[in-house]
Structures are given as C-alpha cells and as structure tokens.
Amino acid sequence: MPKALRQLLRAFAVLVVFCWSAGPILFVVSSSFKRQLDIFAYPPKVVFQPTFDHYVALWHQWDAFLPTLWNSVIASVGATVLAVGVSFLGGYVYSRYSGKLLAISAVYMIAIRLLPPIVVTLPLFPVVDYLGLSDTLTVLILLYASFWVSMCTMIIKTFIDEIPTELDEAAFVDGATHLQTITRVILPLSLQGMMAAAIFVFVYSWNEYLFALIFTTQNAKTAPLVISEVMDAIYGTDWGVLFAGVTIQLVPVVALVVLGQRLLVAGLTAGAVKG
C-alpha cells in the first residue's frame, strides 16, 4: 500500500473513532447551548449562536433537578469514602499477610462481586423497608460501596504491594504500634492507589440507575433517575432544558475521567488483571 493512502486511511479511522466516542456527548452538550429551533435542525448546525437560555430556565422552571443533583453528590461522595476507607484496611491485610483462609476469602470476595445486582434487590427490598431505609441516601451509599469494595481492595492491595515491607519493620523497630504503622507509613504511600479506587466508585455511584430506581421514590432520587423520568415523559419535554440538566450532570465526571486517566488505567490493570 502506498504511504499516502495508508496515512489517509489512518486519518479516516481517527475521525471515525472520534465521532463514535465523543460524538453523542458533544451532541448533548452542544444542544444545551442551542436555541430550541436549532436543536433538531437537519442537517445539524455545527456553527451556531450559543444561548444560555436553557440554563436560566433550568434554574427557574426545573427547580426539582438541583436537589437531586445534590443527592447524587452525597451518595457518590459517601459511597466513595466508605468503600475506599474499608478497602484500604482490607487491602493492607491482603498485602501483608498470607494464609490459606485468606487466599480463599480473596477468591470469595471477587466471586461474590460477579453476581447480578438486580438479584439482591429482591430480598433487600422488604428488609430496607423494615429498617426504615427505604428512599434514603444511606441505602444507596451502602449498596454502592458494597458492590465496589472487592475491586477497590484488590486495587489498593496491588499498590500496597509496591511499598517495601522493610518500611513496616523499621516502624515497628522504632516502637510504632500496628495502627501507627498503618496510618503513618502505609497510608501516605498508598494514596495513589486509593485515588485510583476512588475514581471507579465515584463514577459508578454518580451514574447508577438500577438501585436508585428500585430503592428511591421521592426524597433520595438521584440525578440519573430524574433525567430518565423527564426523558420518558411523552408530552411537553423541554429538550433544551433537559440537555442543560444532562450537561451539568455529565461534564464534571467526564472531566474527572479525562484528568484521572492515568489512575484509571493503573487501577483497571491492578484490579482486573493482577487481581
């Protein structure tokens, strides 16, 4: 194949990949800045006069959206802190101790995570109701964290494995207690691993739909759930306002993934391949 043709093909492939991956996202984001008439213009308007009307309307008319966004923030931050916190302790144990029982519990930990989440909703539904946790962010935080502690533990374990055990021993020799060794020596050195784990839990919790659909009805609704309700409304969907809401929901976490891509890659290989 001549070189020019090969380069042309490569450029074409790059264009296709870009449109496929980023296209739908750019479509939503750009539509939120288009006038209602231009949103569904065909052929689509690539160059247009941007308007912030939909964001103003979102603020004034769709005032139910902002509290649900706040619910999403609390659920995601809560689940992330809980999952990463307990996974750090677990990851430390899996990294520094060994034994047959421990190896079996590691396999069990990964295996249990592979069960379909919808299955556990059946028995949990009445229990959650009985405990008065129905329609609360607490139940979402607990569920989101539970489904991620396996992977987070494995990610953090892999990062702690990189810390030489001589450091632990030196701390012991210097008279540090077990707890002091963990908090003063291991913790600061495994922050990267914890951040890698945190990205996964946060992105999942921020976007989760199934548990929110089943366990929340009013007060604890998260942003994805409300977006889905509005998009299902047959009459009078105000597309511009919906796109504005979606953009606000979307952009922070897309930015997080793009900026944290190094950690994401490290975490994924640590959690899925090495684990």
Partner: peptide, 11 residues
C-alpha cells in the same frame, strides 16, 4: 475514547 465510560447509562 475514554469519555463514554464517564457517561450514565441514562444519558
């Protein structure tokens, strides 16, 4: 290429 990972199924 990474972007769709950050997007909710709803969106």
């Amino acid at each position: 290429v990474l972007m769709p990972y950050a997007v909710s199924e709803v969106v």
